[in-house]
Amino acid sequence: MKDREPLALRWRRLTGLIVKESRQVLRDPSSVLIAGVMPLLLLFLFGYGVTFDPRQLDVALVVEQQSSESASFQASLENSTLFEVETGPDRRLFERALTLGELDGLIVLQADFAEKAFRAEGAPIQVIVDGGDPNTAYLVSGYVELLWANWLEQEWISRGRPALAPSVQLEPQVWFNPEISSRNYLVPGSIAIILTTIGALLTALVVAREWERGTMEALLATPVGILELLIGKLVPYFLLGLGSMALAVITAVLLFGVPFRGSLAV
């Protein structure tokens, strides 16, 4: 009997369910808060609290024997915007600070630095980092390696001698984020994760609330079908999620400066 019902009657029931759920959303401030306020709070936390951009690192430089070469490398390190440098003659002065996390790294110029600095077999430089924070350890070692290569090249040029050409030369090219700003990666990804979580949370809350209030049994006693019930529940919260999406995108573009390119409809 139910399968022979006119399409207009089914459409009327579905429309009634959507209107009923929409009114329930408007009457329930918690749904609006979850869909409007929570995405913005989480977006602020992810946008301002998480970053992979280069930051200033606190390092200590140990120079075991002073020379013009070590002084030149020290000046190059201190002139870098990536490092806040503290110097000393002995590594034991800084080992405790490194263990306590007060320093991000310890750079040691050994006593034979001036003799081996320009030899091809390697550099008399040691970088000590705390493996308890792998990300910071990787940043310190990578930045020191780049600074060492740049300093060595400048020294060869200043001495009027050609620098040693590397056997492999990498030329990376960034297509979709030429500024290499981690915010351009994190904020759009955070929007997707936040809205996925909030969409599931809203739908789960409304269904649980229906069972608690006893209205779900009343709905099941009506001629409403399962598909009609699901669509009636999903459509209002889908539109609410679209509003949250628009609010999050506007915040990302205007507040965090994430560029928006491409089709808005897609």
Rank of each mutant, 00 (worst) to 15 (best):
I226W: 09
L170C: 13
G16K: 02
E145Q: 12
E121D: 14
P39Y: 02
V127F: 06
A192E: 08
E21V: 06
T196R: 09
V266N: 11
W156E: 00
S76V: 10
Y143A: 14
W11E: 15
E69T: 00
V62A: 03
S67G: 15
L230T: 10
R213P: 09
A75Q: 15
L240H: 00
S141K: 14
Q74G: 10
T136H: 09
Q56K: 13
F118I: 00
D104R: 08
A75I: 03
V249T: 07
L220S: 05
G36N: 07
Y138A: 15
W211H: 14
M38W: 12
T196G: 15
L14R: 15
S72H: 05
S182T: 14
S72N: 02
F260L: 13
I18R: 01
R96L: 09
E210T: 09
T81M: 04
V249S: 03
R209D: 14
A221W: 00
P259A: 08
V19R: 13
A97L: 12
A163Y: 00
V258E: 00
V207R: 03
P172M: 02
F260N: 07
V206T: 10
E115F: 14
A114D: 08
L43T: 11
N79F: 03
E78R: 15
R91D: 13
L139F: 05
V168F: 13
A111L: 08
E115I: 04
E228C: 06
L254R: 09
T215Q: 01
R209W: 06
S190Y: 09
F238Q: 12
L229D: 10
A8I: 08
G232R: 13
G122S: 11
F256G: 11
V253D: 08
I18M: 13
S244R: 03
L61I: 04
D112L: 08
F73L: 11
L219R: 09
P134R: 06
V50C: 08
G132T: 00
D133R: 15
K2E: 01
P172L: 07
S182I: 01
L109Y: 02
L103P: 08
A221N: 15
G88R: 03
L41S: 06
S80W: 09
A221R: 04
R159I: 04
G122F: 11
L219E: 14
Y143D: 05
K2S: 11
D130N: 06
D133W: 05
A114C: 07
N177D: 01
E84F: 12
T51R: 13
T99K: 00
S72E: 14
E115Y: 12
T215S: 01
M216T: 13
G142W: 11
S70T: 04
A120F: 13
R55F: 02
L147R: 10
E171S: 15
S158E: 13
S80E: 12
M216N: 02
L41H: 03
G189K: 12
